[in-house]
Design a protein around this nucleic acid. Structure first.
Lengths: 121, 121
DNA sequence: CTTACTGCAAATCATTTGCACATTT
DNA sequence: AAATGTGCAAATGATTTGCAGTAAG
């Protein structure tokens, strides 16, 4: 069972600390942008939004942070053909994404036992 | 409403002709591979399968043909994060057999640790 | 101080496209 | 012959990663 989701941007720092991550300006800015977004922004849109708060935010950091959030079940991506993936907070409502999150959890679990998952065939 | 879907590989040539496309060996091979596939192959898998019938089939042609099929509503792709898109004939259906199998496996794994799966939200 | 984070640029990976040649009608 | 299709390789676009410098705890 994953950790509880921060209810507001203000809770992020403690949440990050709990999972061994540091609270930095770019991360707070990215989180806020994602938190405030009404739709599902893509990485570039998030970078632009975050830069309005923390101008030094770079695209690489956006992608890195989003991936980390996803691995902790805090955010999820929706891949779109021929376009950048779109991101949202929390788990995806879609079954395939739910499966991916579940698989990721199993992968993490397996890792705790010294194993990793590889494609069957 | 798009044109009717060919029931079998043999119907492809006339279908292609109807929409102004030519029936060629690579296309027939790709179609057959997609038609025979039980799961949702990606472009590379389709290329390998098609090459067993028509060795000259190239990846570029696979992608081109798949895109054309999709534009005519004959096939559809399911984009997957960090992986090649998966293709199938006809319109997309949400839950695939593979997803269900994955969930079942997760359920079994969870059960082994004394848990059971419940809907997220 | 030690370890984690960042920007930047180069590297990857899937997919597309330009082009000269081959094939279908 | 005219119009399409094809292979190949180079181009693109999204995402990742290596690295040397910065900052958080």
């Amino acid at each position: 069972m994953p950790e509880a989701l921060p209810a507001a941007p203000a809770d992020l720092p403690q949440w990050l600390a709990r999972v061994g991550m540091r609270a930095t300006p770019p991360r707070l800015a990215i989180w806020q942008a994602l938190h405030d977004a009404k739709d599902e922004p893509d990485a570039v849109e998030l970078m632009v939004l975050a830069q309005q708060v923390e101008p030094r935010t770079s695209l690489g950091t956006v992608y890195r942070f989003l991936r980390e959030l996803e691995q902790h079940g805090l955010a999820s991506s929706r891949p779109v053909a021929h376009q950048r993936s779109r991101w949202r907070l929390g788990a995806s409502t879609e079954s395939s994404a739910r499966n991916e999150a579940a698989l990721a959890a199993v992968a993490r679990l397996a890792a705790a036992f010294g194993y990793r998952l590889v494609p069957a065939a």
